[in-house]
């Protein structure tokens, strides 16, 4: 806390805002010298699946099952909205005929230019079709990740009675709409203890918005589409010869021992294609979900200032994971187009 002041009493605006925020945090969350409010920080419940916001299914897909509206769906729609806005902004800016874009579309252009350079270095003549996937995946994941960082995400939602273990407190009401909050009334002895199974007697918040990349459905959907498209690019570039990557009988009879090994490697390649789906899906999901939990936990342990640092970290991780997802897709696609030349053995 004090390190913000260490830099000297200069009259910059930003450092005074930071200092004021720290003091406000201290006032809210501690009994500091008896003047603070002493609000106890909430340790939220961790839900792995996206929480259902609607009790009734939104619609039922025939032969598949009911579809509920979950809070990750809000995240998905918001991410789609952001991508659409970027698309409109960029296409309008490009149509205006400027050589260099400015503002939001300029930032998107700078990001995509860097990604395009990487793609050109790897994909060669397949750059254009592969880059479309690279850009689409990166932009969607980036929008989704960063939307989880806006204030209100995962904190504003419906109070769900009989689920968590916190008391409900009315704040105020607008017409028939009651605005409530959950309130920790336990003693210090029980502080931070997550409710055990079957002991739900209080209330919990089901947030309206949760970033969609913390939902396995989204990451699996991305991974499945990416891996399917990798195979599509393989077939487009090599035709049926692409299949020999998995069913390699070329050297089976000419080289007695190594032929068998090559055949086995081909089968392993087939396995690795499926493991790509898993690793794609769980890498993004794990990073983002762990990031969200990390923010909860840090926020509940040290409610003042410490979380800001992790916010910056999550900001960075969100960008890195988006680019990594896109870049891995791009690299696998280019490898599929290049045939047997340079195969990495991704045995993970």
């Amino acid at each position: 806390m004090s390190e913000n002041v260490q830099g000297g009493w200069r009259f910059g605006t930003a450092r005074w805002i930071v200092l004021a925020a720290i003091i406000l945090g201290l006032f809210l969350f501690t009994g500091f010298f008896g003047v603070g409010l002493g609000i106890k920080p909430i340790m939220p419940e961790v839900f792995l699946p996206g929480e259902k916001l609607s009790e009734e299914p939104l619609f039922i897909i025939p032969f598949v099952g009911p579809f509920y509206y979950t809070n990750t769906m809000t995240g998905l729609l918001l991410a789609d909205l952001v991508v659409l806005l970027i698309a409109f902004g960029v296409s309008r800016a490009v149509k205006s005929g400027k050589m260099a874009l400015s503002g939001m579309s300029g930032a998107v252009e700078a990001l995509l230019e860097a990604l395009y350079g990487i793609t050109e270095g790897t994909a060669g003549k397949w750059t254009k079709p592969i880059f479309s996937w690279f850009a689409a995946i990166t932009l969607l994941v980036l929008a989704s990740n960063w939307l989880g960082l806006i204030p209100g995400a995962e904190t504003i939602g419906l109070i769900h009675e009989g689920h968590g273990d916190y008391a409900v407190k009315d704040l105020f009401s607008i017409g028939s709409l009651k605005v409530q909050t959950i309130w920790d009334e336990t003693d210090a002895a029980h502080e931070g203890e997550v409710a055990a199974e079957g002991e739900h007697h209080g209330a919990a918040v089901i947030p309206f918005h949760r970033p969609v990349s913390t939902d396995l459905n989204f990451t699996f959907a991305l991974a499945i589409v990416a891996v399917v498209m990798i195979q599509v690019f393989g077939f487009r570039s090599q035709g049926m010869a692409y299949l020999t990557k998995f069913w390699n009988t070329k050297t089976l009879f000419s080289k007695p021992i190594f032929g068998v090994i090559d055949f086995g490697v081909g089968l392993l390649e087939l396995v690795s294609e499926f493991s790509k789906i898993l690793s794609f899906a769980f890498r993004l999901f794990g990073n983002m979900f762990a990031g969200a939990v990390l923010l909860f936990v840090i926020g509940s342990l040290v409610p003042v200032f410490a979380q800001s640092m992790f916010y910056l970290l999550e900001f960075f991780v969100g960008l890195i994971q988006a680019v990594v997802f896109g870049m891995l897709t791009m690299v696998f696609m280019s490898q599929a187009t290049q045939g047997h030349g340079e195969q990495h053995d991704e045995a993970h």
Binding site: I61, G65, Y68, L76, D215, N217, A221, I224
Partner: peptide
Amino acid sequence: LGLNLPFLLVQ
């Protein structure tokens, strides 16, 4: 784990 087929298809 939160995986369900309708949501996956929608995604």
